[in-house]
Amino acid sequence: MNAEFTQDAPLLDVQGLKTVIHLPDGAWPAVDGIDFTVQRGEVLGLVGESGSGKSVTGFSIVQLMDSPAEVIAGRVLFNNEDLRLASEERLRSLRGNRIAMIFQDPLMTLNPVLSIGEQMAEAILEHRDVGRQEALRAAADALVRVGISLPEARLRQYPHEFSGGMRQRVAIATAMLNAPDLIIADEPTTALDVTIQSQILFEVQKLARDSGTAVIWITHDLAVVAELADRVAVMYSGRIVEIGPVDEVLDRSRHPYTLGLLRSSAAMVEPGQRLNQINGMAPRIDARPSGCPFRTRCDRAMSICAEQDPTPTIDGRHGFRCHNPMPQRDAA
C-alpha cells in the first residue's frame, strides 16, 4: 500500500463522529467523538469488546442509524463528500455501489424469495454493462473465492437452503462482487469456523491489494486483525484509545488496554499457567467513570486519570489516548 502517495487524499476521513443512544433516562454517547482515516486499498481493523461502540461506528459512517441511536456530530468525508449531508437517495446509491456492508447476520442482506444467483447477478447488472450469462459467471467465481464448491448448483438455491455459515459466505461474496471502494464488515466471521475464516481473510486481503478496495473490519478478535489489517484502531467505551499500523500497535502498544488484551491471550503464557487477565468489566454506557473510562480497570492509573479525559497523543503514525502510556520500546 502506497501510503505516501495517497496520504493527502484519504478515501474516508472521519472527524469528531459522535453517536448517542436515547435511553429512557437520557442520551448516552455510544461513539464519543472519534477521528480516523482510511486510505484506498487499506484494511483497517476496528477492535473492541461488546458495548465499545465499534459496530455503531460502522453503521454511523453509512448513516444507517435508526432510533434509538442518532448521529449528532462530526464529519464523514467519503471521497471528499460529507455523508452526513448527503440525501437519502444519494446514500442508497452509494451503499449499493461504492460502499458495501457485511453484517453479523447475513439475512440482513439476503432476499429470502430470490435465488442466490438472481440476487448476485442483479447486483452485478445494476452497476456493470454485461450480459446475464457473464454476470452469473462472475457470481460463480465470487462463490469459489469464499470457499463454496459447486457454485453453479449453489446459484440456483435459495438462502434458506444454506447453513448460517454458508449464507455469511454468500453475503461476503456479494459484497466483494463489484470491487467497491469501501467494505464495512461487522464481525462477519465470528460465527464461522476457523478454516473458513482463514480463507475469507485471505480473499479480503487479496481484494484490497488487487482492486484497491478499502476495508473496515470490525471485530473483537485481535488475532484476526493481526492477520488481516494494515492498521488497527482499538475502541473502548466509545473512543478510539489507540490507533496505528498493526505492527506498531501490537508490538509496541502504548495504551494499557491494548496491551492487556494482547497479554490475556493464551499464547502469551506457558500452557497451564494462569492467563494475564484484565480485571473488572467494561463500564455500562450510563455508568462510565469520570476522566479516562479505562482507569477503573487499569493498573497504571494515576490521580490525573480520574480528573481529566486524556487527549490524543500522536507519535508518528501511532496515536493513543493515555495519561500514563507504556514507555516507548523497541520491537520484541
Binding site: 475464516q197 482463514s198 481473510l201 486481503q205 492477520e227 491471550s265
Partner: peptide
Amino acid sequence: RAIPSAVTRRRR
C-alpha cells in the same frame, strides 16, 4: 494451520 494469532504470525 488456520488458527489466527496476534503473537506469532501476521499476514502469512
